[in-house]
Design a protein around this nucleic acid. Structure first.
Length: 351
DNA sequence: AACGCGGGGCT
DNA sequence: AGCCCAGCGTT
């Protein structure tokens, strides 16, 4: 019994029932793959259901505004996925007459679709013989076949890709690809895999050499930097002044407030001075209070945020103009970072 | 080739 | 606290 047959046998017995496995619709398969990039199935599933409900076809998605798409994506993270999703829906609408492309080269030309996602769509939807290589596949192949080089290096990853292509079942690429990923997600898990009940334990290099804990080998470590956020929350009547984050970087496309960002702490006086300089707040707004620190952890940032709360009695003249004033109802229609969502919960904006 | 980009769950 | 997750785009 070869590798592919083994994992397919295992898959047919253990696979989960997931909605995107019940369809060949490339739109739905593409949508599921974008949602699942760097995201666990349990976390992405409700978003998949929400999106297919709100946008039944790719044209529905293309015709929506980016703000609405980002609102639906709120809380899932990596928001460039949502922006690229929307952009590519418009590409399909405008350049492919609303028909999702069916060749690998056209599929991978879509923004947000890389090698992994293109192989997934091409195989799942059109049964084309492209081997997927994601985190699961890297783990399974490096362990079973004994790839000892770092898999986050060009060389190590190249070895995994070469083995993945070699082992692909050309007669049933869709089934093979589903099987190897599910095997990685449920059986050959990152920590404490249950090798005792594994159908490959007899042929697995890592098991045989007792190096399961060391493979896959990774060399890079993610550096976590501090980020201090000082928000000006300016209240006017039944609303707040908000800003869309339009510059490159964290949370692009989402809404928050005028903010001073820094990698080091800033004194209150300096913060207030910044708000005055940038938004001319002193002449027009009254500082009512300053919130305690909100801590928010991201994979690459340790964030500490404080909210400086102001009130004004008329629309300020300078940077905080009418265009940025949103009633509470309007704010809740926009996508906001989880940090801001939690702030809204804390001040009872949701009620 | 290295880095930025979210959020959550598990150990 | 650290690791990982159905990765991709940019520099």
């Amino acid at each position: 019994m070869n590798f592919s047959n083994s994992i397919i046998q295992w898959y047919l017995k253990h696979k989960r029932d997931l909605p995107w496995r019940d369809t060949l619709d490339p739109y739905k398969i593409w949508l599921s793959e974008i949602i699942l990039q760097q995201t666990r199935v349990e976390q992405g599933l409700p978003y998949y259901l929400k999106f297919t409900d709100a946008f039944p076809t790719i044209t529905d998605l293309a015709n929506a505004s980016e703000d609405i798409v980002l609102k639906h994506w709120q809380g899932l993270g990596y928001y460039s996925r949502a922006r690229n999703l929307h952009h590519s829906a418009q590409t399909v609408r405008d350049r492919f007459q609303g028909r999702f492309p069916s060749s690998y080269s056209e599929i991978i030309s879509l923004k947000g679709v890389g090698e992994y996602t293109a192989a997934a769509i091409a195989s799942f939807s059109y049964n084309l013989p492209h081997a997927v290589v994601d985190g699961n596949v890297i783990r399974v192949i490096s362990r079973v076949f004994g790839v000892l080089d770092p898999v986050d290096s060009m060389f190590g990853l190249g070895e995994v890709k070469s083995i993945a292509a070699r082992e692909l079942d050309l007669e049933r690429p869709a089934l093979h690809n589903q099987a190897i990923m599910e095997f990685g997600a449920l059986q050959c898990v990152p920590v404490n895999p249950n090798c005792r009940d594994c159908p490959l334990s007899g042929v697995c290099y890592a098991k045989k050499m007792e190096v399961v804990k060391e493979i896959p080998l990774k060399s890079k470590k993610t550096a976590v930097k501090n980020l201090f956020l000082y928000y000006a929350v300016v209240k006017y009547k039944n609303g707040l002044f908000v800003k869309r984050r339009d510059s490159e970087g964290i949370w692009k496309g989402l809404y928050d407030f005028p903010v001073l960002e820094s990698e080091t702490p800033i004194l209150e006086e300096q913060v207030l001075s910044f708000f005055n300089k940038e938004y001319a707040l002193s002449n027009q707004a009254v500082l009512t209070d300053i919130s305690p620190a909100y801590r928010h952890l991201l994979s690459h940032r340790k964030i500490e945020a404080r909210f400086f709360r102001f009130e004004v009695n008329n629309i300020p003249s300078f940077s905080l103009d009418k265009a940025n004033w949103f009633s509470v109802d309007k704010i809740l229609e926009k996508g906001v970072p989880r940090l801001i969502e939690r702030y809204f919960e804390a001040i009872n904006l949701y009620k």
